[in-house]
Simulated scan of single mutants.
Amino acid sequence: MQITLDSPAPAPQPLSPYYSQVARVEHADGSALLFVSGQIAEGATLAEQTRGVFETLVALLKAHGATMADVINIRTYLTDIDGLAEYAAVRREFLVGTPPTSMTFEVSRLFRPQARVEVEIVAAVSPRPGA
């Protein structure tokens, strides 16, 4: 098993130098698990922030040869659970098909005061061709 930590371009870089965006745990057969750090985004509304978060997640997955279809677990942190329907509407644009396992929490605040949503994911990636 090989573990790689990185913050791949062109995805937005971490807000702090104290963490990596993605931990890739690669198995001998070439399959891998991707653990993606919690993401926040700019935006005036919860929907705008949610869309920005998922666009970043898509970019981070793409850098590792994965898509949102590979997501097996998602954890969402909302500063106001009353926004769940607004968040879920945007999430459905990005997660189609069978939904992954999921947890959603209401939290008092996030890393950035203006952030209303943070999302972290785990994805399972099939073996690379030729592995």
Rank of each mutant, 00 (worst) to 15 (best):
V122Q: 07
I121Q: 03
S7H: 02
E42L: 09
A59V: 13
V117N: 03
R116W: 00
I74Y: 01
D70W: 09
P127Q: 10
D29C: 10
V53W: 01
V36Y: 00
A44T: 13
E48C: 01
A115H: 02
V25F: 12
A85I: 14
P14A: 10
E42M: 10
A89T: 15
G65F: 12
T98I: 12
T45W: 01
L5Q: 09
R24P: 01
A32Q: 02
A32F: 10
A66C: 06
P99F: 09
A32W: 02
V96L: 13
P100R: 03
Y87L: 08
E120R: 10
F54G: 01
P12A: 14
R92L: 12
A41H: 03
S31V: 11
A63T: 09
L33H: 02
Q39V: 04
Q2T: 15
T76N: 04
A88C: 13
R109N: 14
P10S: 10
A44C: 09
L15Q: 14
R91N: 01
A66W: 03
I81H: 09
Y77S: 06
E93N: 12
L60F: 14
A28H: 13
F35C: 12
A23H: 08
P99R: 08
V53N: 05
Q114F: 03
G97F: 02
E106Y: 07
Q114H: 11
G30R: 13
P12S: 10
Q13E: 11
A115T: 00
R24F: 03
Y18S: 12
A44Y: 08
G43C: 11
A11M: 09
V22S: 02
P129I: 13
R92I: 00
E86M: 10
Y77I: 01
T101I: 00
Q13C: 11
E55L: 15
P8A: 11
Q21I: 00
I74V: 15
G43H: 04
Y18E: 13
T4D: 11
E106K: 05
G97Q: 08
A41T: 06
T45G: 05
A124S: 13
F111W: 07
A9S: 14
S7R: 04
V71Y: 01
T4N: 12
T45L: 06
L46K: 03
V96D: 12
R112I: 15
I72H: 07
I72V: 15
P14L: 09
T98Q: 14
L57V: 08
F105M: 02
A69D: 12
V22L: 04
P10Y: 07
I74M: 15
Y77T: 02
V22Q: 03
Q2W: 11
Q21M: 12
Y87F: 15
A23L: 15
R116L: 14
E120K: 06
V25Q: 02
V53M: 09
S31K: 05
A9H: 11
T104H: 08
V22P: 05
Q21L: 12
V107A: 10
V58Y: 02
R112G: 05
E118T: 05
R51G: 02
T67D: 05
P17E: 11
T45N: 00
P14Y: 05
A124I: 00
